[in-house]
Amino acid sequence: MAALVVALALVVALLGVLVIGLLRSHAEILRALHDLGVNLEDGVAAPAAPRRTPAVSNRAPMRTSEGVPRPRDENAPMGDAVDLTGELPLGGAARVAVTGVGHATLLAFLSSGCGTCGVFWEALSVPDGPELPGPDTRVVIVTNGPEAESAAAVADLAPTAIVTIMASHAWDDYRVPVSPYFLLVDGPSGTVVGEGSGTSWEQVRDLLGRAIADAGLARSDDHSRLARMGGQDRADWVDSEMHAAGIEPGHPSLYPTPHASHLGADDATP
């Protein structure tokens, strides 16, 4: 009888320890849920507690399709943009301003040798220009410099209506991990607002279109239509608009007489 009582007491003690452990585990789960903003005790969601580690990235989480490399560290801020200086594929030097300007610039980092890049060389060469991820966006193609790329091959691939610049240091400045790679620069703020890669122009356009929307850069489409036009298209558009307004070559309105107030001291040489 005494042995039975002792055994029963041991069982009760073990069950007690087990219940205490379960209650402690339950309390830890509740505390963790509370930290995440869930409060089960009164059935009302609690306000989210401050994050213990502040978010560093201003990008959405990014996944890439098979065969498409991931961009650089997701938690790295995209940072400030820099203007581009480099060589032209047919010879010569060029500088492209992307900071402080009134429009966005889509930098397409391409190579003449990579297979996936061929899709983008072709997409950017369509006669009416590619459909861009946002209004008032200028496209600039950036390849590595002549020391790493065939200038002749780049010249063959370069679309006539898009500025193509060869500048290896730009790949370093923007920390471009692979090609093809695309960065969207907001001109007025001089910052990179979106970046990524893809296997088709549509993917990239949609990706960067979302970046534009997230950054609140959507603008009127009227100006962008003109910006997307090639030089001849712009000239034709201007001619047609003037013709429609009754202004033909030699029209007096093309040669206005300066107002008297503008002919004074201003007319001296600076």
Binding site: A161, T164, A227, Q232
Partner: peptide, 17 residues
Amino acid sequence: FALPAERGDYGSGAVEV
């Protein structure tokens, strides 16, 4: 302003924008 890629030596294609 942003120089268009297609333009003449005397700036045709650029003055239009």
